[in-house]
């Protein structure tokens, strides 16, 4: 159990390091996509044969535990949002916040239709090759 949790923690720090480094390089001084890099690292690590050889059997249970805990964490997250001030922010905050979401949601089917077609063609070409 602990091995998987430790691996997860290691990925998080490694990813955040890359994110922060990128932040310094771009002059933003904040974490840019650290979580994204950490996710890719974890994905690579759990698929790697060497890692699976080094780690004791069943280590992935520790990762799975936190994967299961994801929704409870999100519930806690929603319970600690500043909902009161969001509502107090007034009509502009409400309209702007809701407005951008609605417009962007309308764009999803559009983007899905426009771009992926090409991507899928590419993939099928690769398969044929």
């Amino acid at each position: 159990m602990i091995y998987g949790v430790a691996l997860l923690a290691g990925c998080m720090f490694a990813g955040s390091f890359v994110g922060n480094l990128l932040g310094i390089l771009t002059g933003l001084n904040s974490d840019i996509g650290g979580v994204g890099f950490a996710m890719i690292l974890l994905l690579l690590a759990t698929n790697s044969k060497t890692v699976n050889k080094i780690m004791p059997a069943g280590y992935t249970k520790g990762v799975e535990f936190w994967k299961e805990m994801f929704i409870p964490v999100i519930i806690a997250l929603s319970a600690s949002q500043n909902v009161a001030s969001a509502i107090d922010g007034g009509l502009l905050a409400l309209l702007a916040g809701v407005g951008v979401v609605v417009v962007m949601m309308l764009m999803i089917p559009l983007l899905n239709k426009l771009i992926p077609q090409k991507a899928e063609d590419k993939v099928s070409e690769e398969v044929e090759v």
Binding site: L8, A9, C11, M12, G15, S16, G34, V35, A38, M39, I40, L42, L43, L44, T46, N47, T60, V63, E64, W66, K67, M69, F70, P72, V73, I74, I75, A76, L77, S78, A79, S80
Partner: peptide
Amino acid sequence: IGILGGSSFRDFAIISTSYGAKFSEI
């Protein structure tokens, strides 16, 4: 609740969700 739902555990839990995702899809 603020600890469990804070940014540290949020990121930790989000990272764990990538386990089992398909690399080919990404």
